[in-house]
Design a protein around this nucleic acid. Structure first.
Length: 457
DNA sequence: TCTGGGGTCCTAGGACCC
DNA sequence: TCTGGGGTCCTAGGACCC
């Protein structure tokens, strides 16, 4: 089984914000360089979709509600759903907050006929909607991961699709080749040059032709999928291979001191996540995106594995120093890989490596742009109760007072520093979860506090 | 006002080793 | 003096997914 929550982030927002139900809702980065994360079906009718530049989305659907994400709420809903799935089988492989595979054959009811399967799916979807206060999911059932995934795509939105064993090849034949996971824009371009548009076209190519065009691994994999051959197991536990933090700036940055400070901040977060996962890393990578959107990476593998901020920081700065950032940087990222479970500290003379560098006088707190007043975030007013940020600017913030339970509520405007208004809790997660893992230990050189505004999401 | 952030997997070349 | 044949590790880049 493959399960996919429908327009997940937008659906959670509509659930919790009754005034937005039935209206176009777009969740994503609200900054200058944001992109759309999820658009509600109402917004999709205007041609708004995932990964679209937010500026384009605003052009296409100016009357939509544009919201930053509330990842705490999404995580909570996701947890409920994953829990329901684990009741069906211990073998659940989450792909993201809104998607998972379930190996039903590993569960207690391993030999279900078609109608029993449909019943199981219907029952699951009903319980899911109840347990999440109204979210809906699409479910695909099939004899492999690939077929189940294709089936859930065909079931969207809010449906079930069972691909009966034996009908797989016929089911996928008429679909565009692009519907096969792994076939993206670049692969599709290459396939189109071979005259391939549909899966049926793909089936006409030999393995040799595909391997010649796409390489051994991708070619053979694609040929197999075109014939519905897929024996990949559902894997409940996948080990982490890399951890990274990156940030696209509202405006390109060319100041090396500022960039160094940002590298430190990223390194601190990466090291914090390493420690939390009880992992150590051998390779540190820095990624830079230039103003023209091309990007480069530089990495270094250490003799031993570390989870220390100072080490990650120092290596990241060194790697960054090897790049000419004087013409501006659009994005800076710091990542680690080569993860192991035991520390094996590299011989790394931190004191010596600091020679010639200024060590900050005091440990400046990792100040960040206040998280408050991002559109869509939750607030509480002492008199009016819970609500959400509708918009803000010029020292004012507008709040709509409603919750999932109240029905559409009224809008009021306050001064941003109104003492009766409790600002949103620090958002967490991919979009805003930068509340700083400040790791203790030896002092690290910090960049100037309050660095560039960064776009969220 | 073009183009996020966090990942995984693959390829290709060079260094290095036996 | 006229060039092996693996294999592994590392680096860099790219495609793709949600």
């Amino acid at each position: 089984m493959h399960l996919d929550l429908d327009a997940f982030f937008a659906a959670v927002e509509q659930r919790d914000k009754p005034s937005l139900r039935g209206k176009p809702v777009i969740v994503g980065g609200i900054g200058l360089r944001g992109v759309v994360s999820t658009a509600s079906y109402e917004a999709r009718r205007y041609g708004v979709g995932s990964a679209m530049a937010m500026s384009e989305a605003r052009r296409r659907c100016p009357h939509a509600a544009f919201l930053a994400g509330r990842f705490g709420a999404y995580r909570q809903a996701s947890g409920i759903v994953m829990g329901l799935l684990r009741e069906l089988s211990p073998l659940v492989e989450p792909l993201s907050l809104d998607e998972a595979f379930v190996d039903l054959a590993a569960g207690p009811e391993r030999q279900l006929g078609d109608s029993a399967l449909r019943e199981l799916a219907a029952d699951l979807r009903a319980r899911l909607t109840t347990a999440t206060d109204g979210l809906t999911a699409s479910v695909g059932l099939g004899s492999s991961k690939f077929i189940a995934k294709v089936a859930s795509e065909l079931a969207k939105p809010d449906g079930v699709r069972l691909v009966t064993p034996g009908t797989e090849v016929a089911t996928i034949a008429p679909l565009p080749a692009r519907a096969i996971p792994g076939v993206g824009p670049a692969t599709m371009d290459r396939l189109a040059r071979l005259g391939v548009q549909t899966v049926a076209d793909l089936q006409r190519l030999s393995a040799a032709e595909l391997v010649r065009e796409l390489g051994k691994s991708a070619g053979e994999h694609l040929r197999a999928l075109a014939w519905a051959e897929d024996d990949r197991p559902v894997e409940a536990e996948r080990e982490t291979k890399s951890i990274s933090v990156e940030d696209t700036f509202e405006h390109d940055i060319s100041d090396a001191t500022v960039l160094g400070g940002i590298a430190d901040r990223h390194a601190a977060q990466v090291a914090g996540r390493l420690a939390k996962a009880e992992l150590f890393a051998r390779t540190v990578t820095v990624k830079v995106r230039w103003p023209d959107f091309s990007s480069v990476s530089r990495s270094r593998t250490l003799d031993g594995a570390t989870d220390r901020v100072e080490v990650v920081s120092r290596v990241a700065r060194d790697l960054l120093d090897g790049l000419d950032t004087s013409h501006g940087v659009r994005l800076l990222g710091v990542g680690v890989s080569g993860l192991v479970q035991v520390a094996q500290e590299p011989l790394f003379d931190l004191e010596a490596s600091r020679t010639g560098r200024v060590v900050e006088e005091a440990e400046a707190p990792l100040t960040r742009r206040p998280a408050g007043w991002l559109p869509g975030s939750d607030v509480v007013h002492t008199h009016y109760g819970p609500g959400w940020v509708w918009g803000s600017g010029l020292g004012r913030v507008t709040v709509r007072f409603e919750t999932a339970a109240t029905g559409p509520g009224p809008v009021r405007t306050f001064a941003v520093d109104d003492p009766d208004l409790t600002p949103p809790v620090q958002p967490s997660g991919p979009c805003g979860g930068r509340s700083a893992t400040v790791t203790k230990g030896p002092r690290v050189t910090k960049g100037p506090p309050q660095l560039a505004n960064t776009s969220c999401g």
